[in-house]
Design a protein around this nucleic acid. Structure first.
Lengths: 144, 144
DNA sequence: CCCTGGTAGTTGCGCGATCAACGACCTGCT
DNA sequence: AGCAGGTCGTTGATCGCGCAACTACCAGGG
């Protein structure tokens, strides 16, 4: 396996470093301002955009890239705080829906400006429109 | 705060999702093939490229974006496995160097092909040369 | 000289995530 | 009908990390 060129290395490690830095910054900011972790925010957002503000546990886990067990506990915490509730699935007795509550929606809306500002400040603001589109296309390609 | 455009959203979430997926894939692969986590590999690599294969704890922590406490324990584990050793700093009685051992270097070299193959397969192979350069430049700009 | 403010590294604690194992349930085949 | 194999969500155990507190040490000013 031939070594990476300097440019390749920079393209890869820059990706890693930026993610680590940004994830920590934005998480801290959101936690401090609204008591939500990035994971909380991610789950809430997925639920908001889902039909009826509810999602099957497994689908939600896939959407936020957590294991099922990781999601179980994250939903536990959100439920305990009243931001989400569990609803039995009618068509499958094993299944559960995670359902956004009124309060969950409100908290999400309250937190959104903070988070969007952070994402812009740390990421989008540095990108031209062309670059933004190029990145979006690139991630789509890499996801397939 | 105005909402994100679809493209902006894709540029951001794609970044997040790709990182989560890749980090998990590459970590599992490296763990299974060589018993090293990505964090282990990262530390070993930093030490390899450092002068005398050694680095002050604080500098190493900065290089791999861990807190000092996180690094202390990571080095604990590596030391326990004989891949790294701690050396007192001569110029500062508080200071410690993390120093790569022979075995640590060997393990790193053994693991490198696996890791490079994974990075290429999941990331670099999908990029044209121009894109690779553009990304490297972009990360550099975002780092400042 | 010492004393104050700051830095280096380690530690106790708590959190959040994974993995493996489990019970409950579904589905298709015989 | 009954069983085999797979899926859904949860749980117990464990791990790695950050935060805050701590000790040891450094450096500069009175």
């Amino acid at each position: 396996m031939s070594p990476l060129t300097v440019t390749e290395l920079a393209a890869w490690t820059g990706f890693l470093r930026l993610h680590q830095r940004l994830a920590r910054e934005l998480d801290a900011e959101l936690e401090q301002a609204h008591g939500l972790s990035l994971g909380d925010y991610d789950v809430l957002t997925q639920l908001e955009s889902a039909d009826g503000h509810r999602l099957r546990m497994a689908d939600l886990a896939d959407a936020v890239l957590l294991t099922r067990s990781g999601l179980t506990r994250l939903v536990d915490r959100l439920q305990h705080r009243g931001l989400v509730e569990r609803v039995k699935c009618s068509s499958d007795q094993r299944g559960m829906h995670a359902q956004l509550t009124e309060e969950g929606l409100a908290r999400l809306h309250a937190a959104r400006p903070t988070h969007l500002a952070g994402v812009r400040r740390g990421f989008l603001d540095e990108l031209s429109q062309d670059e933004t589109r190029a990145l979006a296309d690139l991630w789509a390609r890499l996801g397939a």
